[in-house]
Write a protein that binds this DNA or RNA. Structure first.
Lengths: 151, 151
DNA sequence: ATTCTTGCAAACCCTTTGCAAGCTA
DNA sequence: TAGCTTGCAAAGGGTTTGCAAGAAT
């Protein structure tokens, strides 16, 4: 079972700052990949990338490191439509959302000030506090739409 | 159990109207339970409820029926923090989103025409088709905010 | 030297699927 | 009767875990 790791999209009010982990080549390798990617990746995908890159890290370790990073608040965790956990380095200060292609996985980052405002307003109206939200749009990108008019 | 969990949710702008299913006792049993519940339930939970109730329906069938109902748009689908699919018959008809309490799980249904419009517009601008979106707001409801002012 | 991390493989858990039997339309 | 559904059990796929070997401090 997944531990505490509250799979949310943005930074939480409760940091939970876990203890520092040791610096290992595996951890550095995972971190390096995350630095290069701008989109969310599943553990399996990240593991595959590391393999292709020669910097092999076992699947189990990939899972452990990614979870660890998430616990430390160094990465954002989300769950895709299949329920798989996907991670992204959350160094970005600008809050934004994603427009994801359901077929090829392409992701476009979009901003939505209007939505942010709406979310805040709605929450306040209902007396909710410590609010955060997730907004994701799924669809077929232009290319996939062209070559795949079904499915 | 399931708490603040992001990701996915609801149905699409595309009805996808699946074909009508046959009326079986299993389907009726599942439907009956959904009618009585106001919160989201996982397939496993619903299956357990049916068992306790005597109206046994196999796990596999529970999964099939729930998915079927979701395809028909008769229930809302969401994913909890563990990535499990959870369903709930929605009180509100029409497309809407949720304002969820991260602490007690309370859910408030909210509509957001502005967001719908924004999502559609954004997707179109990028040439995406067959679009659907998920919007969930997480926070602490009034009650939990009051009793949890420190932490 | 001690303590933490990694690998590997088995274990888990939710979910899906093949098939034969049962039931609906 | 014909065709969809159900059950059961096995198969899948992602994720976790036990344990011994290998690093980091």
């Amino acid at each position: 079972m997944s531990q505490g790791a509250p799979a949310d999209g943005s930074r939480t009010a409760v940091p939970a700052a876990a203890k520092e982990q040791r610096v290992t080549k595996q951890r550095l390798a995972v971190s390096a990949v995350l630095d290069e990617l701008t989109d969310f990746v599943s553990t399996q995908e990240l593991h595959r990338i590391l393999q292709d890159r020669g910097t092999s890290v076992s699947l189990a370790t990939s899972y452990r490191i990614l979870q660890s990073l998430a616990d430390e608040g160094q990465v954002d965790v989300l769950r895709n439509a299949d329920g798989e956990a996907v991670y992204r380095r959350c160094a970005v200060t600008g809050h934004h959302h994603h427009l994801l292609c359901r077929s090829c996985g392409k992701a476009v980052e979009v901003e939505a000030p209007a939505v942010e405002a709406w979310a805040a307003r709605t929450a306040t109206e209902h007396g909710f506090t410590a609010v955060e939200h997730t907004v994701e749009i799924f669809g077929l990108c232009p290319d996939c739409t062209a070559r795949n008019t079904g499915r």
